[in-house]
Amino acid sequence: MVPFEFAYYRPQSIAEAVAMFIELEQKGKRPLYYGGGTEIITLSRLGLVSTAAVIDMKAIPECRVLDADSDPLVLGAALSLTELVEANPFPLLTKAAKEVADRTARNQITLGGNLCGQIFYRETALALLVAEADIVIAGPNGVRQSRINDLFHQHLQLSRGEFVVQIKVRRFAVELPHFHHKRRKQGEIGYPLVTIAALKKDETIHAAFSGVCPFPFRSAKVEAHLNDRRRPATERIQAAVNAFPRPILHDIEGSADYRLFVAAQLLEDALRELGETI
């Protein structure tokens, strides 16, 4: 139940969406782009989101592309996580997506929504960060493309009126050896205590984390320690954990020291699975 009124728009093209946004913004409607709507609706109910207009992206053809055969492969931002899982164009992303929320919710949650949501886990971002995917963004200044790693600092740095159109993942990244694990406080449904996505490219491990901090991250410092093969694995892991950004989450899902304990273990699993000697 949304306890306020908003108008719903469903543009058919990128240009139309941007034009609508600009017009609604000028009218003071503080419009929101609308993917699956799951977060907009549930946070509205709690008074954490408000808007007078939503712009649904699901009718924009570019946002619905799923091209698994091209290089790079192209994933529309308005694809649902279930669509991504079922088509499985990028196995590491599939694994990440499959752990978000639950199956029925994933039928609605979109890739763009998960990347851009306020709920700070944004778990699909991990796979894209380690794969160094490209991100196509549209906005009042036109369409641009960048490496996600340049734009994602805690969250995607979009300017007002911009939205994610597509994600592009280069073919070779899709085939790299990888690791993914999500550990929760208890059981198999729920937010993460720690989620790790990692892959190995040219003998270098890339690793990204959610649940450790109040934002997902991939860190050069952390990776430098992980890849420092002069030292034994346990030391590499400890150094990596010590280099995590701050603050470490300390909340109802778990305490900070426990999260670090879990993260260290998952890193050990990751290194082992990626063929490092432990």
């Binding site: 059981g187 198999e188 449904i189 729920g190 937010y191 899902e253």
Partner: peptide, 11 residues
Amino acid sequence: LRTYRPIHFGE
């Protein structure tokens, strides 16, 4: 129920 999670199917 997002953060207070009773047992789910499969658990």
